[in-house]
Design a protein around this nucleic acid. Structure first.
Lengths: 339, 339
DNA sequence: CCGCACGATGTAACCGGTTACATCGTGCGG
DNA sequence: CCGCACGATGTAACCGGTTACATCGTGCGG
């Protein structure tokens, strides 16, 4: 069907071994031989069959990534970071989405066996058991933002808890007393950690009343709904901390519609620092999460494992507080000149 | 090293052929035999080696995508569409970025040989020659937003020219006389087509003066620079058409900084309808491009080619005019309740 | 009771590369 | 001139699956 190494060998009147050596740049091939073979290969439009080569070398030059989804700002940035690290080492990226289901995660894990040299996994369901059951033995694996504390695999994550603490402390610091939180989806690890941070700071702070948590699901719509509720509360909180920026934006619309001024009547903060955060009016105070960096560091750690079997560093990325007009009366950001 | 089918066969006291048949659900295996083998396979944590299976079946269950980049709103949405189509058919997605270089595109093409069943390619450099030279014969391929008119491969694209025409006609229609354009990068196909649309409409419209093109590169910064220039022009254009939304946003900042009111003093329009477009003030008039749909349609066409060798439909996606406050004095969009 | 048909299972070739080991040929030292 | 060393090339095993074909065994019809 397709052109194989045999065709090239026949056409060049040499053995397949010589063709393989010539095309892979081995030493012991005369220059004339090499150039003759290269000529024939080019003329025949020969290109080596990846699967065959992988089978024989036991290397695929590919790292697999299993993510909840492939699109959206978050995963897009994550892939950007992974791509940077991968291409630096001439590796390909095979991506698979698990859509948040354990079964799909397991299926993806099994389907990738023998197709990748290592795996980057972000999945709420990637617990130790599931990994052990579906991961081919000895596949280098790096986990991202995972619940599983099982130190078996290298893990990288965003310090969501620390970030949430920092934000709540900031809000308390600038004088807000009653801070409501719009939480993310119940089964989401990031959302849980952010909520936990909020609770921890409130618990150890003496000056405040009780916590006030509204359920959201990370969508703008859920933020809008929560904002509408908050606007009607009595007494009304004097600050709102949304577990992500999209909900903060939805909330902002709802507060505006209710005739409330942000930050005059009520302060508002988000989490993530999505690009839109600085474009809305007022610009949104938020925690900047460097997602691409997380992806890049995780990929680098994986690549290191590919060569040296030992290294297994862990790591967290600390988000960074970005203060904008939505919760403190400072001047808004100037437009960024470049990305 | 790893568990292979031979280990399972030995452990279950059968031949590898029987194991293969049992695990692949073939008919002619007794139920006891099948369950015994499944039991052993599970216990041994056997998972078939993908490369070996691919080599033998000549199927990889994977489609490859070669894109200029893997991140950013555009490619992210594109991947979303591809993912939808791929997972519907149980296929994986192997992505590779060409970073806009012909060499990298060629390298990616060759590296994917034997690792994918078909290819989705978006690359400014994917011309007929490059494809012919680097594509293994008979690899089903679908091109996206390509220059190459060579009807050899199926191609899908956004109707950038038509969209730009529609936008310029709209601007003329609401009474603007002198419309400047902020163009995209010189070697970019989409940018060229949008510019061509602008020129074509102006050329066939009698009422206007000459065209006025400022060079940009699709970045917010270049839009900002162009906006600063425009603000100082005399006579000043009464409308600006930016080749994409990011430049339009940059331009908006520059115009605001220069004390100009949009749309009072000068109208502004973009292209793409990125999510931010409706959040800025004033909300941006733009052409909505359904990128995910493009990716999904292209992937579907590829998948169709995988089974039936014949089908080779072409297709364009028409962008849709979205009128917001930035260039006509209408009421702004209400917030979207859901995505 | 014998032989045939058919269903279950095994043997081995094959997919397309890589590479250890064998072989071949040439040049040079004694 | 002979033999040995070494560099270039070839042969064939191997990677881990799938599947065509061969073989085996059982039951049933004549």
């Amino acid at each position: 069907m397709s052109i194989t190494i045999k065709d090239v060998a026949r056409e060049a009147n040499v053995s397949v071994a010589t063709v393989s050596r010539a095309l892979n740049g081995h030493e012991n091939v005369t220059v004339e031989m090499r150039s003759r073979i290269e000529e024939v290969a080019k003329q025949l439009r020969y290109m080596p069959h990846g699967a065959a080569r992988s089978l024989s070398t036991r290397r695929t030059q590919t790292i697999g990534a299993i993510l909840p989804d492939l699109y959206g700002e978050f995963f897009s940035e994550l892939m950007r970071g992974m791509d940077v690290a991968a291409r630096e080492h001439g590796l390909h990226l095979l991506v698979s989405s698990s859509h948040g289901s354990a079964d799909e995660t397991a299926a993806a894990l099994r389907a990738l066996s023998g197709r990748v040299d290592g795996l980057l996994i972000m999945s709420p369901h990637a617990d130790a058991t599931l990994l052990a059951d579906n991961l081919p033995l000895a596949t280098p694996t790096v986990l991202m933002n995972t619940r599983s504390e099982a130190g078996e695999h290298t893990a990288f994550s965003i310090d969501n808890h620390g970030g949430a603490c920092a934000m709540v402390e900031h809000l308390l610091g600038v004088g807000h007393q009653c801070i409501a939180m719009i939480a993310g989806p119940a089964d989401n690890f990031d959302a849980d950690e952010r909520l936990r941070g909020y609770r921890d700071v409130l618990a150890r702070s003496s000056q405040v009343g009780s916590e006030q948590v509204l359920q959201g699901d990370f969508s703008e719509a859920s933020g809008y709904a929560a904002g509408a509720l908050i606007a009607r509360m009595s007494p009304r909180p004097d600050a709102v901390f949304a577990a992500n920026d999209m909900m903060a934006l939805g909330c902002l619309f709802a507060l505006n519609e209710a005739g409330l001024d942000v930050p005059g009547d009520i302060a508002l903060a988000g989490f993530d620092d999505i690009p839109m955060a600085r474009f809305v009016s007022p610009p949104l105070t938020t925690m900047r999460v460097n997602i691409a960096e997380l992806g890049e560091r995780a990929a680098r750690a994986l690549i290191a494992q590919l060569s040296e079997a030992d290294s297994a560093p862990q790591g967290t990325s600390a988000p960074e507080l970005v203060v904008r007009a939505s919760c403190a009366t400072r001047s808004p950001d100037p437009p960024r000149k470049a990305n």
